[in-house]
């Protein structure tokens, strides 16, 4: 026989808190511990990436009753203070992933989370390649470096379920609704390729405010765009069905 236990993940991206958002966001998280076992934030937590905004986010997320795992997004890098913002969040008890992984104990289950900001470049057949000017090569190499780090982290992690948390999208299906011309700035297939190679159960991303909620990698891993404007609610809750064989 087997019993089914769900691992409940609350997820949202692109909350874009500014200094005028202090005190507002936390109210939306009331009761989250009754709905989910873990809270994941898919980047773009601030508006301009200032330290003041980083402190607002840290205060809004401080000492939540369930573990919070976050990655940063491009907005959080805008003021070149991404490391300082990450430190503020860590001081508030938030686990911040930077192309690495963490294992959380959720009840009897081990949940592995791997991720980081991700980056762009486009999708197979219509993407930039490491050729030509140094600037283009650097752009593509940045994504390739990130994808490689995720692959290694996913392979190393020992857990019952593995979830990837990104800001940029690994697939184009969840970008539908955005102008196709900007897809290369919204994600890269290299991210999906890495996750498909190493294996995972679910991928979350944000960044594409006008994109679509649901998609799948070429390898069949479910992808969810949890950008706040796509969800239209404070966070989504995703239940991973874990099967225990007896």
């Amino acid at each position: 026989m087997s019993i089914l236990t769900d691992l409940r993940i609350a997820a949202v991206g692109d909350i874009h808190l500014g200094e005028d958002g202090r005190g507002h966001y936390r109210r939306r998280l009331e009761g989250i511990e009754e709905r989910a076992d873990v809270f994941m934030l898919a980047g773009d937590l601030t508006r301009h990436g200032t330290l003041q905004e980083g402190k607002v986010v840290a205060d809004e997320l401080r000492d939540l009753p369930i573990p919070a795992v976050a990655v940063l997004g491009n907005h959080d890098y805008h003021s070149d203070l991404q490391d300082e913002i990450a430190e503020e969040l860590r001081d508030a008890g938030v686990i911040v992933l930077d192309d690495d992984g963490v294992v959380l104990q959720c009840g009897e289950k081990k949940l592995g989370v791997v991720g980081g900001k991700g980056f762009g470049g486009g999708f197979a057949g219509k993407c930039a390649s490491e050729f030509g000017e140094r600037e283009i090569k650097n752009f593509v190499a940045h994504t390739r470096h990130i994808a490689e780090a995720w692959k290694v982290a996913l392979k190393e992690i020992v857990a019952d379920e593995r979830v990837v948390l990104s800001h940029y999208s690994p697939i184009k299906e969840t970008l539908e609704g955005e102008p196709p011309e900007i897809y290369p700035f919204l994600g890269s297939y290299l991210l999906a390729e890495a996750v498909d190679t190493a294996g995972a159960d679910l991928i979350f991303h944000g960044h594409a405010h006008k994109g679509s909620a649901k998609g799948m990698t070429p390898g069949g891993i479910r992808v969810r765009n949890v950008a706040l404007p796509v969800l239209g609610r404070a966070y989504g809750v995703y239940c991973l069905e874990c099967e225990d064989g007896f």
Partner: peptide, 14 residues
């Protein structure tokens, strides 16, 4: 304005 207040329905991924 997207006013996100309620978390809404859960999605079950089986």
């Amino acid at each position: 304005i997207v006013d996100a207040t309620e978390p809404g329905e859960d999605e079950h991924l089986d």
